[in-house]
């Protein structure tokens, strides 16, 4: 017993600070958030205990999911995530594929594609808000003006001010910023495939397409999955980019994270917490299977 304690004790003590901090500030607060979301704590008076808040179980969730406005936010989130994921994966892969073959100036291109990631979403949002100005024809500026100058007037549109698809316009800067990161991941994946494998495939008479289809793609799939998960969870939490291009009150660009912010500033803590929990569940649906899978692979 004592021996066991001696063996386990010190590492446990070393881990204790982080365990305690994570326990309190991550898991403890998740529990606190969840309990708030089960109450009718919708006013400032209830938040400070001047008026009682009672447990209403899942009423807030039901009301939220039934409301047309929140459904619009969720739809926006789905659209944004699909376009953002597809955009970064396609661009990232194309760039990685082009850079994969040894060529002159590879380092320069790699840096050029990666640089946008160094810019914060808030800073790039300020610039993109101008580029994505929705004025057309005479008053046009930004990209719409550019379209006019090159004679593509028909491409002018109102960008993020379209009530149904506006959110997709905000995915454009997000794609611009993170494609380089996905490229770096894929490039690492390509470089991790030994040349022998390619040579062996060629020796066996595989065409270039078959080489990719049967030799390289299977080796890249773990990388692709990691990229999907990383970009996916970033997309689900999208807030700063949307806030700096649009405004929290703009209906066309609402997503759950923005709803959470607006509820909080209305002193409606219960609904803010409920939106937070819904977001956590959505992210968990994406992340948990991935974690289980990675865990299993590591054990093997």
């Amino acid at each position: 017993m004592l021996k066991k304690l001696r063996r386990v004790g010190p590492p446990l003590l070393m881990l204790a600070p982080s365990l305690i901090l994570v326990g309190v500030f991550v898991y403890g607060l998740i529990v606190a958030n969840f309990t708030t979301s089960l109450t009718d704590n919708h006013t400032a008076a209830q938040a400070t205990g001047q008026k009682p808040a009672v447990v209403v179980w899942f009423t807030n969730y039901i009301d939220l999911l039934a409301s047309e406005d929140f459904q619009h936010s969720l739809m926006n989130l789905v659209l944004y995530t699909v376009v953002f994921l597809a955009g970064t994966m396609v661009m990232g892969f194309l760039w990685a594929w082009m850079l994969e073959k040894p060529m002159k100036g590879e380092g320069i291109f790699r840096s050029v594609y990666l640089f946008p990631m160094a810019v914060s979403f808030v800073a790039s949002g300020v610039v993109w808000r101008w580029l994505l100005n929705s004025n057309q024809d005479e008053q046009a500026s930004g990209l719409n003006r550019l379209f006019q100058m090159v004679g593509l007037d028909a491409l002018q549109n109102n960008w993020w001010n379209n009530v149904t698809f506006g959110i997709i316009a905000i995915a454009i800067p997000a794609i611009w910023q993170l494609s380089g990161y996905v490229m770096a991941l894929f490039l690492a994946g390509f470089r991790g495939i030994p040349d022998e494998l390619r040579e062996a495939a060629r020796m066996d008479g595989a065409s270039e397409w078959k080489l990719y289809r049967h030799v390289l793609f299977p080796q890249l799939s773990p990388v692709a999955l990691s990229a999907l998960i990383i970009i996916g969870h970033m997309s689900l939490k999208a807030f700063d980019l949307i806030m700096s291009i649009s405004k929290p009150a703009n209906y066309q660009t609402k997503v759950p994270a923005v709803d959470m912010f607006v509820f909080k500033s209305s002193f409606d803590y219960a609904n803010a917490a409920a939106v937070g929990s819904i977001l956590l569940i959505i992210v968990a649906i994406v992340i948990v299977p991935y974690l289980i899978r990675t865990n299993r692979e590591e054990k093997q």
């Binding site: 006013t43 406005d69 009530v163 066309q252 607006v262 500033s265 409606d268």
Partner: peptide, 19 residues
């Protein structure tokens, strides 16, 4: 109060964007 104003703002934005 703030909550009423926020609700009115949401409704206004929804209307002016055409939703």
């Amino acid at each position: 109060p703030v909550a009423t104003l926020n609700a009115i703002s949401d409704a206004t934005s929804k209307f002016t964007t055409g939703a």
